[in-house]
Amino acid sequence: MPAETLDRVFTWINEYLETREGETINLVWHGGEPLLLGASYFRAALEIQRRRCGLNSGRISHSVQTNLTLLNTDFISIFKEMGITTLGTSFEPLPGIRGMGTRMDSKAYNEMFFKGLKLLRENNFGWGFIYVVTRRALTQPLTLFHYLLNLALGKGFAFNPVLIYGEDTHQLRITPKEYMEFLGALFPAWWAHRAWWPSVEPFTHYESLIVQKRARVGCADSGRCHTSHVYIGPEGELSRCGRAADWDIVWYGTIEDRSLRDVLSEDAHNKAFAQRNQVLRDGECRGCRFWDMCHGGCPLDSFAAHGDLQHKSEWCDAKRLFIEKYFEPVTGARFEGFSATN
């Protein structure tokens, strides 16, 4: 994103914050690989933020999702200034899935990852990682789980299924059922050791929802992501979120065309999102006891499969099956919705 666009973005954000007392903004720097921008870019961004947002700067926080391979002390320094104390990352121990160059040199890649990780630890940064479950992980769930637990120690990590929009050239795609069974192979062990093992998503999340009965869900399951998330592209183009932009399926114009308040409002552009809840409650999700924690899942899954937002995610059944087949029997808890317990 050129400096002029960055300048405009922070002006745009400040306009929003000026009219929304008490609200905060979290800027997630995501890619690709955001560290390719260089530490000086982030330094410039922070200066622009301070110049354009003034006192509202205190209501803006930053997060970074990075592969750690380019991390150095310059980044550590500027991230500290930006108030960042934890970095999000991802990791893949299995060879040939992620690596450098056309030969996918995983060893070289992972060596750089560990170098970055060491730097984080030496500078007392927190970190958490995502593990993307692909077809190659399905044959060895428990040994892979042990590896990730050993890597994480007290830090948390999250499992996400690989999401491929379009052709699956590397044969990595998994079905929702396969993902559910993968999680099911791990959950009993995690539950038995959860006092000692780190937080593992989605297990910790389900524990919070179903056992502790805390009504807090992520964007994809909230039914309200259109009021809380915005993607800003390198030219100031606007989409629903990073995934929507990656898949090139939802666009809202640019920061020149629309204010942030407009983008997050329940106007015509978001009407399809807003209507989705009612359509699903009356239709595909009617009577589902997991509605409160799911809301039909990520709307983009509906778009990918059907070309519109009015269907539940294909991952919904996997979620439900995991909870019914593994989570509830193992824990003895049962989800009855939040309205019954509020």
Binding site: P93, Y147, N150, L151
Partner: peptide, 10 residues
């Protein structure tokens, strides 16, 4: 952790 198989998987 950099080895393809072995102790880190234990």
């Amino acid at each position: 952790f950099l080895e393809g198989a072995g102790c880190a998987y234990c």
